[in-house]
Design a protein around this nucleic acid. Structure first.
Lengths: 148, 148
DNA sequence: CTAAACCTGACCAATCCACTCAACTAAATA
DNA sequence: TATTTAGTTGAGTGGATTGGTCAGGTTTAG
């Protein structure tokens, strides 16, 4: 359950590759495609969205490619996923584009809302830099492990 | 992103209705259907899975219906959702039925793994009883709110 | 001016979702 | 034991979404 689509997954991996060129070495689609094993055509779709969202910028012509638009530590996983897949919305009631029809379902409403907030809270705290430096390993070790 | 299917959503709502009959008043599919606005035929599928999973039991014939198999506080939302939709698996690499093909993708692997654990951890701590008593409201107030 | 590189939109196969339908079996009660 | 209530099972289906591809642009450096 709660599977993330490939767009989101590939998007994060692509951002990771682009981050490796930070701050001034443009990374081409072809490079990303080869390193992450995703087709160029599909990557174009994904990178286009990320560019429109202001997370990356592109340089055309020979020697061109993609660059981060902000520092890696300023780009959260949450921001990447939101650009590609919209906000976290466990249920349709919680999707800003839809809404809650049944009012007496409020007990479960709070449940899904809480879960969504928890997920978003977590993704907000992880940045591209954390991905690069492997900071996630330490963090999760401290936060998730139950046994000291 | 990360939408839960209706099976999971309806399943939790159905369990909530059945919990209202705990410990000995069987709740019929029809009642659940009416109160939760879900078709009888679809509920049959859902309740069947939950019964096979040992979360509820059924009594046939007149006066029959569905009953919880355990105390409401012993049934977690996590257990309900797992029965209906399988384990949390943000990516296919984390699905026990599939697996990780690319090894160098381990940075994102940890990311999705951590997220999955966080989600599961949360769903484990919420029980049907919490849903009934509204305990979720207090809990989330304490856990999620950042500002004291 | 041409090749490298990005941009755009149409298109498509396959899968999954959210159900419905039809027919069956088991239990209770009259 | 006949009837009725109620759960059981499996197949089927229309529509939406996913996960891409393809063809043909346009822009820019050299």
């Amino acid at each position: 359950m709660l599977r993330l689509s490939t767009k989101g997954q590939y998007g994060v991996r692509a951002m990771f590759e682009i981050a490796n060129g930070y701050p001034d070495k443009p990374v081409t689609i072809k490079e990303i495609s080869e390193k992450q094993a995703v087709s160029v055509a599909y990557l174009e779709q994904i990178l286009n969205k990320l560019r429109n969202g202001g997370l990356i910028k592109s340089i055309k012509g020979p020697g061109g490619g993609y660059l981060l638009n902000k520092k890696p530590e300023k780009i959260s996983i949450s921001a990447i996923l939101k650009e590609l897949e919209g906000p976290v919305a466990i249920t349709s009631c919680l999707d800003p584009k839809e809404g809650c029809v049944r009012v007496d379902g409020c007990v479960t409403y709070m449940l899904w809302k809480s879960l969504g907030e928890k997920i978003e809270g977590f993704l907000d705290t992880v940045s591209l830099k954390d991905l690069i430096t492997g900071a996630l390993l330490e963090r999760t070790a401290g936060k998730i492990k139950k046994k000291a």
